[in-house]
């Protein structure tokens, strides 16, 4: 289930008298409850039987609802080498606890000697940098853990 589908459910709930909705799929459980006056509140928690975590070299989905709310990931759009700064003596594009704007550059991924400046696809605060400088990354691999907003 992706964000779009969750939004569709919320819209459906808004347009109907439905106040609670829950679904369980392989690996996660989602429950949405709607107060009488407020906006829908989504509560999700990991289902008991979680699949084993993906190996770091495997493409990881950009967001799984089994995480705490508001936590998201910036993922690699390509295979290449990850660099946090344009050069060894220059400061990194971003650091932990820093707020990054949507479209601000967060890293460089070198692929076939093209230095690709990677923009954040969402605004948020960097919680964790998941790849070490100079390490190879795969397509879809998580690079930064961020708190959206």
């Amino acid at each position: 289930m992706d964000l779009k589908e969750i939004k569709q459910i919320i819209d459906l709930m808004k347009r109907s008298d439905l106040t609670e909705f829950s679904v369980e799929e392989q690996g996660f459980k989602l429950r949405i409850r709607r107060g009488p006056a407020g906006a829908p509140v989504a509560v999700s928690s990991p289902a008991p039987a979680l699949p084993p975590p993906a190996a770091p070299s495997e493409p990881a989905p950009s967001a799984t609802p089994s995480e705490e709310i508001g936590v998201d990931y910036i993922t690699s759009p390509m295979v290449g080498t990850f660099y946090r700064a344009p050069g060894p003596e220059t400061p990194p594009f971003c650091d932990v606890n820093q707020l990054v704007e949507e479209n601000s550059i967060v890293c460089i991924i070198e692929a076939m000697k093209i230095m690709n400046e990677i923009p954040a696809d969402k605004r948020g605060t960097i919680l964790e940098i998941l790849v070490e400088n100079g390490q190879p990354v795969e397509f879809g691999q998580r690079l930064f853990k961020i708190k959206a907003g």
Partner: peptide, 24 residues
């Protein structure tokens, strides 16, 4: 590889490509 231009084992030209990404 990938694109250092060499003459007699020495570099005669260097190339560097810098790119800006959009979403995809």
């Amino acid at each position: 590889w990938p694109n250092d231009l060499m003459a007699d084992g020495k570099k005669v030209a260097g190339m560097l490509t810098e790119a800006k990404m959009d979403a995809d």
